[in-house]
């Protein structure tokens, strides 16, 4: 059974696109067949982070408008055989995605892949609603600061009311991915504590990804960080998060700390 996963946040710049690429690559590296879908029409980024920008011929909008077949628009990753990208259009605006068109493409992708990972645009408008509409699982990307947490809270409310699953009365599976976490700033009290973020959002924690130069370096060379730096802290955090998404129990660690003390918290929060 294919799973449609949306990577969403409300706020921009928190790491949705980075996380889509890293989680998608990590799942594919574990042998799952994965497609990452860029919903950020007009501001596409995922192709860059995946290093596929020069291979884009047709895009999501072309498929929706019947100008290309899905198979023509999908780009197979050069390094990981089971990973594909459906790029967004850079030239159209977001109204080019029709509700029915998106539904049709999602159905087709579900047939072909184990995981369909949708990279949501920022905001709570049309683009973000379309990206979450068909999801079975949501990864809510949050930075440990107040405005990001509030936006995530808002998005969780929408996930629980505006998705097809919610409208059918089914529960939406939601996971918190805390990114750009800086241990020193957390200790100084410049950032919200992990416990506080978890308490406010009250959804289970999927992982904590450190603020790291390795992430910037990875996107500059067009590789997901799980590919360019599988042994970096960020690469490992994403790989662990991907395994948890698959359902494997992996003890939780806070970047920069040796002990896995959050395991207890993670277990307790798995509501």
């Amino acid at each position: 059974m294919a799973k449609v996963l949306v990577v969403t946040s409300g706020k921009g710049g928190v790491g949705k696109t980075t996380s889509t690429a890293a989680l998608g690559a990590a799942l594919a590296q574990m042998g799952q067949s994965v497609v990452v879908v860029d919903f950020d029409v007009g501001l596409r980024n995922l192709d860059l982070v995946m290093g596929a920008e020069r291979r884009v011929v047709y895009d999501f909008v072309n498929v929706i408008q019947g100008e290309a077949k899905l198979a023509q628009a999908l780009i197979r990753d050069k390094r990981i055989e089971t990973l594909s990208l459906l790029p967004a259009s850079q030239t159209r605006d977001k109204d080019a995605l029709s509700e029915e068109g998106v539904a049709r493409v999602m159905d087709e992708l579900r047939e072909k892949f184990d995981w369909v990972i949708c990279d949501s645009p920022a905001g709570i408008e049309r683009g973000a609603s379309l990206a979450m509409r068909h999801a079975d699982v949501a990864v809510v990307v949050t930075n440990p600061e107040v405005s990001s947490v509030r936006d995530s809270d808002r998005i969780i409310g929408l996930l629980d009311s505006k998705t097809l699953r919610a409208e059918r009365g089914e529960r939406m599976e939601k996971h918190l991915l805390l990114t750009r976490y800086d241990r020193l700033r957390a200790e100084r009290g410049d950032m919200l504590k992990t416990e506080d973020v978890l308490e406010i959002l009250s959804i289970p924690l999927l992982g904590i990804v450190p603020e790291s130069q390795d992430v910037l370096r990875a996107s500059n060379i067009g590789q997901p960080v799980t590919v360019s730096g599988p042994d970096t802290a960020a690469g490992r955090a994403y790989a662990d998060a991907a395994r948890r998404l698959k359902g494997d129990p992996v003890p939780m660690t806070i970047p920069g700390e040796k002990t896995g003390f959050l395991g207890r918290l993670f277990g307790r929060r798995a509501a």
Partner: peptide, 8 residues
């Protein structure tokens, strides 16, 4: 039963 989220 559920939490009331920001904006609701």
């Amino acid at each position: 039963e559920d939490p009331i989220r920001s904006g609701q």
